[in-house]
């Protein structure tokens, strides 16, 4: 799936102050490419991902998935795209504590409104991220690295064309970081477009291209 961003901007208004968290972002990512965006905290990286995921409405500009605009959609339509076409790994601990690892991974399938059984796919994904033995374990028993891998498996359960990852390796040790980046590389090699934002330089070597984000603007 190709991801194209044209003149994207988002302003936050606080009193009389206008703050452009993202401004004039233009980006085109072909299918199967792994793009990294590096930038400091507050540079607008997470806002950019939330705009692409349809969690925030852009103030200006547009986003296209396979040439189709996702701007101005209803909540149901935007949620449908986020569910079926985009896999989103949020920043920090982003698993649901009341569900087992197995249920966490298969959950997005049930938001898609599709009928069927996702057991086999869930098991395959858990095997791919090395968590098969933790199927019935609750997140409270898992380490930080394992939790990230649960989130990755979950983001892939609906076989999305685009994978968005917000600081997927923050607070992880070198070994866990390496394992997760290797997973992302494999995902991209299998044809999924990956856009990762990070502030860790070590992770950049796994991507195909690197962009820098500063004060809401994206540069090469």
């Amino acid at each position: 799936m190709t991801l194209e961003i044209k003149g994207l901007g988002r302003v936050f208004v606080q009193g009389d102050k206008k703050n452009w968290a993202v401004q004039d972002v233009n980006l085109s990512i072909p299918q199967g490419k792994f793009i990294s965006v590096i930038g400091r905290s507050g540079s607008g990286k997470s806002t950019l991902l939330n705009l692409i995921a349809g969690l925030l409405e852009p103030t200006v500009g547009d986003i296209f998935l396979n040439g189709r605009s996702i701007h101005g959609l209803s909540d149901r339509q935007a949620s449908g795209i986020r569910n079926r076409e985009i896999g989103y790994i949020m920043q920090g601990r982003s698993v649901l504590n009341n569900l087992t690892v197995f249920d966490n991974v298969r959950l997005p399938f049930y938001f898609s409104g599709r009928e069927g059984d996702v057991t086999e796919r869930t098991r395959t994904l858990l095997e791919q991220v090395g968590l098969s033995r933790y199927e019935q374990v609750y997140p409270a028993k898992l380490s930080g690295g394992e939790l990230r891998r649960v989130a990755i498996a979950r983001a892939l359960v609906n076989q999305p064309g685009v994978l968005l990852a917000d600081e997927p390796t923050s607070n992880l040790d070198g070994e866990n970081t390496e394992e997760i980046m290797y997973l992302f590389r494999q995902i991209a090699d299998r044809g999924t477009t990956v856009l990762m934002v990070t502030h860790e330089l070590d992770t950049l070597q796994y991507g195909d291209e690197v962009y820098r984000m500063e004060a809401g603007r994206l540069t090469v």
Partner: peptide, 15 residues
């Protein structure tokens, strides 16, 4: 945070 995670997975506001 729990609701934000659900939204990121594609849950509608109605859900």
């Amino acid at each position: 945070k729990e609701f934000a995670i659900l939204r990121s997975l594609g849950a509608t506001r109605k859900t």
